[in-house]
Amino acid sequence: MNALILIPARMAATRLPGKPLADINGTPMIVHVARRAAESGLGRVVVATDSREVAEVVAGAGFEIAMTRSDHQSGSDRIFEALIALDPAGAVETVVNLQGDLPTIDPASIRAALAPLADPAVDISTLGVEISREEEKTNPNVVKIVGSPLSPARLHALYFTRATAPWGDGPLYHHVGIYAYRRAALARFVALPQSALERREKLEQLRALEAGMRIDAAIVDAVPLGVDTPEDLDRARAMLA
């Protein structure tokens, strides 16, 4: 697939202000993420940001940047603006939205996120990991995928929730927030209004499901550390030391 990896980055994170430039062992976090993206070998890597400071740091590390507006409500909106600016002719077929706070993500997991798009019925693909820690099963900050198993390595997503679901015996899956979109699916998604369940669960992927779009998840072995707090940042420094 002709893929473009876009990494949205903004400085206004509430729990960890200035997060993209947080130092991890001498390297800003956003640069770590860009390096993991480049190591995936999927193709062009661009950081989409509204911050000149982020842009200068990223460009200084040798990566491409796309300047975007500052009023976007989500990373999906930001990457769509960047996509139109970077590829107005529509040559890019697949767009990967890689969050800029995943400095420990395995490049193989980034590649795995595209696998479900081999099925032409799939609009958006993402990642899941089987939950092994009991406390995560009831943690509302751990988003769960409720889906129909298509194989040991793939789910057809039916719902995403902060609740403990589904009920009964069997595995629960932690949703990893990386998305691969067909270009037309991304264009459709950002044009949709917020949905009722999206607002209730505070999960934007529910907008796509409520609109009848299909999301499948590739199942991988490990959850990358998402850096949202100073404590997470300390963990990332230890993991990447």
Rank of each mutant, 00 (worst) to 15 (best):
residue 1 M to G: 10
residue 2 N to L: 10
residue 4 L to W: 05
residue 4 L to F: 09
residue 9 A to K: 04
residue 18 G to W: 06
residue 19 K to G: 02
residue 22 A to E: 09
residue 27 T to V: 14
residue 27 T to F: 05
residue 27 T to P: 00
residue 27 T to C: 12
residue 28 P to R: 11
residue 39 E to G: 04
residue 42 L to H: 02
residue 43 G to R: 05
residue 48 A to M: 09
residue 49 T to P: 00
residue 53 E to R: 13
residue 57 V to R: 07
residue 61 A to T: 11
residue 66 A to F: 04
residue 70 S to W: 15
residue 71 D to P: 02
residue 72 H to S: 10
residue 78 R to T: 15
residue 82 A to H: 03
residue 86 L to G: 06
residue 88 P to Y: 10
residue 92 V to G: 00
residue 98 L to K: 07
residue 102 L to E: 06
residue 115 A to L: 14
residue 116 P to F: 06
residue 120 P to V: 06
residue 127 L to E: 05
residue 127 L to W: 01
residue 128 G to P: 01
residue 131 I to G: 01
residue 134 E to R: 13
residue 135 E to N: 04
residue 136 E to G: 01
residue 138 T to L: 08
residue 140 P to T: 07
residue 143 V to H: 05
residue 148 S to T: 12
residue 150 L to R: 12
residue 151 S to G: 07
residue 153 A to T: 15
residue 160 F to W: 11
residue 164 T to C: 13
residue 164 T to E: 14
residue 165 A to R: 12
residue 169 D to I: 13
residue 169 D to F: 14
residue 169 D to W: 09
residue 171 P to T: 14
residue 171 P to A: 13
residue 174 H to C: 12
residue 174 H to T: 04
residue 176 V to M: 12
residue 182 R to S: 04
residue 182 R to T: 03
residue 185 A to T: 03
residue 191 A to K: 14
residue 196 A to M: 13
residue 196 A to K: 12
residue 199 R to S: 13
residue 201 E to S: 04
residue 202 K to C: 05
residue 205 Q to N: 13
residue 205 Q to I: 09
residue 207 R to E: 02
residue 207 R to Y: 00
residue 208 A to F: 02
residue 210 E to N: 02
residue 211 A to Y: 00
residue 212 G to Q: 03
residue 214 R to A: 06
residue 215 I to V: 08
residue 222 A to K: 15
residue 222 A to M: 00
residue 223 V to Y: 02
residue 225 L to A: 07
residue 234 D to P: 00
residue 235 R to D: 11
residue 235 R to N: 12
residue 239 M to L: 13
residue 240 L to H: 08
residue 241 A to Y: 03
